[in-house]
Amino acid sequence: MDTDLSVSELPRLHWRVLKTLADGKQHSGQSIADSLGVSRAAIWKSLKLLERGGIEVEHARGIGYQLIDGSVELLDAAVIRPPGLPYPMELEVFSELASTNQFLLDCVLGRPQMPFLCLAEYQSQGRGRRGRNWHAPFATNLNYSLAWPFEQTTFLSGLSLAIGVIVAESLAAVGVSGVMLKWPNDLIVNEKKLAGILIELRGEVGGTVWAVIGVGINVNMSRDELSAIDQPWVSCRQVVGTKLSRNLLARELTQRLFGGLVCFQEQGFSAFIHRWQSLDWLRDKPVTIDRDDGKIAAIARGVTEQGLLTVETSAGPVNLSSGEVSVRVAD
């Protein structure tokens, strides 16, 4: 079979090529093409894009292709699943999804009340807060979503802030220091975005409310990999000076999310507020608040126990909900 693939099909081919090379042995371009049922040209194109994405491939003329030791790590459900979780958990790892959050939103209703963790090597339609796109190269960052069942009476205000604390502490546990929290859902290092959180809800009348907790972390992305991001960003790799294990980070995050979400169910955001305040990146900074009715200049003054941002304006203090506004540090 001699088939060339379009650019939109390449992420799926990346996964298959990486799986072939993951044994660390040398494979000729022709043998890879034959085993995957595509052309040599498609394999060459995939390998070039993988290299551009930071995955190092060694090519010995007349012998074949081989991954350089430690250059890539594919997500592994067996490594990601922490031992001794207090509840059973369903876990799926995909080579590609449109969106890990959307996958869970589409399937949680009517399911048993069991947490469901979904990860993908690549998202074609990843998204962040207020409909913004979330860009991530193939097999490089962490595209992570956890569906968690809450009783309908649970007060979920401040949940995204509590998740921010848990993500920051998970990163610190694997050696990524200096992480700060930008209200309501960004993680910042050295004035640049490292990670983002998106929480979306699904519920049944009189039944369970599912919180789909999406976490996107720039793990091993390098500076020349992606020009599509329109804001200053940084990766864990740049912070610590070496590549980080995405599997170990995902396991640490999952372990801490289970404990943190049980705590949130019992105590709400009040159990996290002091830790959040110690990581508050906006505290006492001049900010610009974008609202539907215009922009407002203010000074950020921390958060309330309901997760609202308190700002000091010319008219006095105001508490803001994340659904109403966008906040940025003033120029």
Rank of each mutant, 00 (worst) to 15 (best):
V17T: 09
L97G: 05
L97M: 06
A211H: 10
W183Q: 02
Q306M: 11
A300C: 06
G259C: 03
V262F: 14
G203A: 12
V108T: 10
C107H: 12
G164E: 14
H59R: 14
W233K: 01
I43Y: 03
L146E: 05
L21C: 02
G214M: 04
E200H: 11
V93S: 03
N247C: 15
C236S: 12
G158K: 03
V329D: 05
I163W: 00
R129Q: 15
E324C: 02
A228I: 00
G203R: 08
S321C: 04
R328A: 13
S95F: 01
S227P: 09
V311E: 11
A300K: 07
D292Q: 12
V79Y: 01
S235I: 08
Q306F: 08
Y144M: 04
I43C: 04
D284R: 05
V287K: 09
L36P: 02
M221C: 07
I63Y: 10
F264Q: 02
L181W: 03
Q267I: 01
F138W: 10
K193F: 05
S157K: 02
K45V: 09
A300E: 11
V209N: 12
F258C: 09
L142I: 13
A211I: 08
W44E: 13
E204Q: 15
V209F: 11
R223I: 13
E200I: 14
I80R: 00
R111C: 05
G126K: 07
S31W: 00
N141P: 10
E324F: 01
G259E: 07
N101Q: 12
S39E: 10
E169L: 13
Q125G: 09
D331T: 02
L201M: 05
S35C: 08
P82Y: 07
E200P: 14
Q66S: 02
P149M: 03
C118M: 08
V287R: 07
K295A: 08
N185F: 00
T153Q: 11
P232K: 00
L253Q: 12
V57D: 15
I188W: 01
Q306I: 01
V57N: 12
D331L: 02
R16L: 03
G259Q: 06
D292A: 15
R132A: 04
L181Q: 05
Q152V: 14
A250L: 06
V327S: 09
L97S: 03
M221I: 06
T313M: 13
N101L: 04
P11N: 10
G110D: 13
N143V: 09
S222R: 15
S322P: 04
A139T: 11
R61N: 03
L198Y: 07
E121P: 00
C107Y: 02
L156G: 04
S145D: 07
L161K: 05
L75D: 06
L320R: 12
D331P: 15
S227V: 07
M114S: 14
K45N: 12
R16S: 06
L91I: 13
Q265Y: 01
